[in-house]
Amino acid sequence: MLVDNHNRKINYLRLAVTDRCNLRCNYCMPSEGIDFVKNDKLLTIEELSTLSEILVGQGIDKIRITGGEPFVRKDLMVLLRNLSKMRGLQDISVTTNATLIGPHIDELKTLGIRNVNISLDAINKATFERITRRDQYEVVHDNLMRLITEGFNVRTNFVVLSGQNTDDILPMLELTKNFDVSVRFLEEMPFNGGSRNFDSIEWDFKKILAFIRKNHPDYYKLESPTTSTSINYKIPGYVGSFGVIPSFSRTFCGSCNRLRISAVGDVITCLYAKPCMNLRSVMRSANTTENVQKLILDAVGSRAKTGFEAQQKYEGVFSNSMTSIGG
């Protein structure tokens, strides 16, 4: 079992498989993209599988595959097949923009991988294309509806952007009226590849909730796990639910159970901290298991208590793009 220096059990790994993405969302990176890493710097699928197995042996029982866009990686399904056979791993999930998942939906179902988070910041086509700078709306919408209707546990992640997509908040909520889906609204974070700097946000989780309450005054709060990053609610008569994630306000730090490893092997103990070590060379040397286990113990043994504490220790952390740190 992994327990950090604040007595928090760490059982959830967010594992990035690539820093590349086929969209260019304007809150995530500049229009020209970022300097993506060379392929030889990425952990191989075999290394990602071995690393996952080591961490499962240390008590990780939930792994979320992230990117970039995970399905940009052509060999992703090999990793997912390996994970699906891993004893002790109870929950495998994927975060995706849903542009490339279509051909893999049947196999995901066969593997028992039913938890899919879809990054979707607009339900209106024009707004979607303006934010993503790509013409992929129909593909995303079709894959979203297929996942919902074929029984996947679908959550959509909607980053609320002042002046860009707030008109889509209520229409996005309507998705929960007839479908068992969770629509989650996230506060914007400053991880955008340096394209914009800010110290505060207009649309924090309190404003999002107040805006929804004006139109749905009878929504009520749901019970959520103590480690949940989202505060979850339901509108009476609606099949699905909605939530808010205070990703900028960071109200959930006290129960954080997450560890992040980037596609190049960087270990990140807090989203608002810089990597504390890199595992790539260790994965390519002798005594891999013992060395990785020791380094992971060292990492979780020196975590910041909150994202605010972590942020104070590092300069330039916001120059990163979310696509490079795995979300």
Rank of each mutant, 00 (worst) to 15 (best):
L2N: 09
H6Y: 15
N11K: 11
Y12E: 04
L15S: 06
R20H: 13
N26V: 12
M29P: 10
I34L: 05
N39R: 04
K41Q: 14
K41F: 15
K41M: 12
L42M: 13
L42Q: 05
I45D: 04
E46R: 01
E47Q: 12
E53W: 06
G57P: 05
R64D: 03
T66I: 04
E69F: 08
E69V: 01
K74M: 08
K74C: 03
V78D: 15
R81Q: 15
M86S: 12
D91R: 13
S93E: 11
G102S: 13
D106L: 05
D106T: 11
L108C: 09
K109I: 00
L111I: 02
V116M: 00
I118L: 02
S119T: 10
A122G: 10
N124W: 08
K125V: 05
Q136E: 13
E138Y: 04
V139A: 07
V139K: 15
V139Q: 15
L144A: 03
M145A: 03
M145C: 02
T149L: 08
G151F: 07
G151N: 09
F152A: 14
F152N: 10
V154T: 08
G163R: 06
G163M: 01
N165A: 14
N165E: 13
D167P: 00
D168F: 11
P171G: 12
L173A: 07
T176A: 15
L186G: 02
E188N: 09
F191I: 04
S195D: 04
N197L: 11
F198P: 00
F198D: 00
D199Y: 00
W203Q: 06
K207M: 12
F211P: 00
H216G: 06
H216R: 02
Y219D: 10
S224W: 03
S224R: 15
T226V: 14
S228F: 07
K234W: 01
P236K: 14
P236N: 11
S241V: 10
F242G: 01
G243I: 09
G243E: 06
I245G: 06
S247M: 00
F248K: 05
S249V: 10
R250H: 12
R250M: 14
R250T: 09
C253V: 07
G254Q: 10
N257G: 01
G265F: 05
V267A: 04
C270N: 09
P275F: 11
P275G: 06
M277K: 02
M277Q: 02
N287T: 01
T288S: 09
T289E: 15
E290R: 11
N291I: 08
G301C: 03
S302A: 11
S302H: 14
R303C: 15
T306Y: 14
G307A: 05
Q311C: 11
Q311R: 15
K313T: 08
S319H: 10
N320S: 15
S321E: 10
T323K: 08
S324P: 01
I325E: 10
